[in-house]
Design a protein around this nucleic acid. Structure first.
Length: 414
DNA sequence: TCTGGGGTCCTAGGACCC
DNA sequence: TCTGGGGTCCTAGGACCC
C-alpha cells in the first residue's frame, strides 16, 4: 500500500480545564488547575495555559503548584463528566470515519484511509489537501458543537501522528507529508517520542544522545541495551517509520481501553490523608477497596484469577504481593486473601502512605466456570430437580462434578 | 518539585513438568 | 543417582502513558 498521511491523532487541548469552562464560562482566560485543593496530598491532573506560564505542569504536587500559582482557581477532578464529553467527541469523529480508536480519555486515533474520494472538494489541490481540510473540519465541528478546543496531527504512522498533534498545540492541525517524517523528528528532544520516558531519556543522555535524530542514527545493539525488546519499535518510531495500524496490536503503543474493549486489570488505590500505622485503619481501607474493585468486576462481567495487594510506606518504598486463585469477583472471597497478603507483607509498624487492590488475569464471568461455581450451579440444579422428583432422582458421577439424572421414570410415579 | 490514580506491557527468577 | 534443556505458569518489580 502506498504510504500517505492518513492517520490522525486528535488530542483535546487541556481537556479537563476546557470541560470545566463549559460549566463556568468565567474560567475562560484564567489560571485553572484541576486536581484538588491547593494544600492537599495530590498532583495537578490538568492545568490551563495561563497557569503554565508560572511553571505549573501536570504531575506537579499541589503544594508546589500552590507555591507557584496561589492565585489560580483549584478544582476537583470530575471523572464521570469528562468521560461523558469524551464519548460525545468520539461520536462526532465517528461521523467522519468508521475506524476510530480511543487511546485515552482525551486522545483518539482516526484512520482516514480511503476517505479522500469521499471528502474531495473541487478546490482541493491534491489528496493531502483533502485530508488536511477534513481534519480541520473535524476540529471545527468539535469546537462548534461542544465548545472544546483540540489539536490534530496527520501522518503516515500512529506515532508520527501523535508527535505531530503535540507540535500542533494549541488548537492547530499539522500534516507531516510522506517522506518528511525523519526531518520533522530529528531536532526534537527524545522525550517527544511516545515510549521514551524519564528513565530511558536519562540513559540516552548518559550516552550523549539528546535528540530523536541521534536516536535514529544509533545501532540496534546500542538501543537494545536501553530498550530491550522495544528497541526496534523505538528505532522505527524515531525514524518516522512506525506502523499505520491504529489498533491496539502494537505493544509499544498500547494505551487506554474504552468501553467495549477487553480490560486486562481492574484496580483501586488510595493515598491516606495522613500516613497511618494502624492495622485497623489499613484493613478497613482494604475492605472498602475490595468492595469497590469487585463491584466494578461484576459490572464488567469479569472474574479475576490474580489478586494483588499494593502497599506504599511513608518513605515511598512500594511493595506488592499477589496470589492466583480460582476465578472470583466476590469480596467475600477476595478480602480474606487481601488480608492474608497484607499480614504477610507488613512487618514492624512503619507508617503506611497508600494501599491498593488490583484484579488481573481476568476471565469472562459466565464462560469459564471454576470448579466451585460449577459446583454451586450444579448444586442448584440438583436441588431443583430433587425438589420435584425426590432425592434419588439425581446422582453425582463418582469423582466428577457433573450432575446426572437417573431413575427418572420410577420417581415420576410417586 | 515530598511526589494521584487508573491503566498497559516487559523482565527476571523460580517452580514444575516432560 | 545424577544429569540437560525447553516450555509454561506464577510472582515481584518497574517503565511508561494520560
Amino acid at each position: 500500500m502506498l504510504r500517505a498521511p492518513r492517520i490522525c491523532c486528535l488530542d483535546l487541548d487541556t481537556f479537563f480545564v476546557s470541560v470545566e469552562r463549559l460549566f463556568d464560562p468565567s474560567l475562560e482566560g484564567k489560571a485553572v488547575i484541576v486536581g484538588g485543593r491547593p494544600g492537599s496530598r495530590g498532583v495537578v491532573t490538568a492545568c490551563s495555559y495561563e497557569v503554565r506560564a508560572f511553571g505549573v505542569h501536570s504531575g506537579m504536587s499541589l503544594t508546589e503548584a500552590a507555591r507557584r500559582a496561589p492565585h489560580a482557581v483549584y478544582l476537583p477532578v470530575r471523572g464521570e463528566v469528562y468521560g461523558d464529553y469524551s464519548r460525545r467527541v468520539r461520536a462526532i469523529v465517528e461521523r467522519y470515519s468508521p475506524d476510530v480508536q480511543s487511546a485515552s480519555i482525551d486522545e483518539m486515533f482516526i484512520d482516514l484511509s480511503g476517505c479522500e474520494r469521499l471528502y474531495r472538494r473541487p478546490g482541493d489541490l491534491g489528496p493531502d489537501a483533502t485530508i488536511l481540510r477534513t481534519a480541520r473540519e473535524i476540529q471545527a465541528t468539535i469546537q462548534g458543537e461542544l465548545g472544546l478546543p483540540s489539536s490534530i496531527g496527520v501522518a503516515t504512522s500512529r506515532s508520527m501522528a501523535k508527535v505531530a498533534s503535540g507540535l500542533a498545540k494549541p488548537a492547530g492541525v499539522m500534516l507531516v507529508g510522506a517522506g518528511s517524517e525523519a526531518r520533522t523528528l530529528a531536532p526534537l528532544p527524545v522525550r517527544k517520542l511516545p515510549g521514551i520516558g524519564p528513565v530511558a531519556a536519562r540513559k540516552l543522555a548518559e550516552a550523549g544522545v539528546e535528540t530523536l535524530g541521534e536516536v535514529a542514527a544509533m545501532s540496534l545493539e546500542q538501543l537494545r541495551q536501553i530498550f530491550g525488546a522495544w528497541a526496534e519499535t523505538v528505532q522505527r518510531g524515531a525514524r518516522g517509520e512506525g506502523s499505520s495500524d491504529i489498533s491496539r496490536d502494537q505493544p509499544a503503543f498500547r494505551e487506554h481501553d474504552d468501553a467495549g474493549d477487553t480490560v486486562r486489570s481492574i484496580s483501586n488505590e488510595r493515598t491516606f490523608r495522613e500516613d497511618t500505622s494502624s492495622s485497623r485503619t489499613a484493613l478497613a481501607q482494604l475492605c472498602s477497596l475490595c468492595e469497590r474493585v469487585c463491584w466494578r468486576a461484576r459490572r464488567r462481567g469479569v472474574k479475576a484469577r490474580t489478586i494483588t495487594l499494593k502497599l506504599r510506606y511513608s518513605d515511598f518504598e512500594t511493595l506488592s504481593r499477589s496470589r492466583t486463585v480460582p476465578p472470583t469477583h466476590s469480596e467475600l472471597e477476595i478480602y480474606p486473601i487481601v488480608k492474608d497478603l497484607y499480614l504477610d507483607l507488613r512487618t514492624g509498624r512503619r507508617a503506611i502512605r497508600l494501599l491498593g487492590v488490583a484484579l488481573s488475569n481476568l476471565v469472562t464471568a459466565g464462560a469459564q466456570l471454576d470448579l466451585f461455581e460449577r459446583d454451586r450451579a450444579v448444586n442448584e440444579s440438583i436441588d431443583a430437580i430433587r425438589a420435584r422428583y425426590g432425592f434419588e432422582a439425581v446422582r453425582r458421577a463418582a469423582g466428577t462434578l457433573r450432575g446426572r439424572a437417573v431413575g427418572r421414570q420410577e420417581d415420576e410415579r410417586s
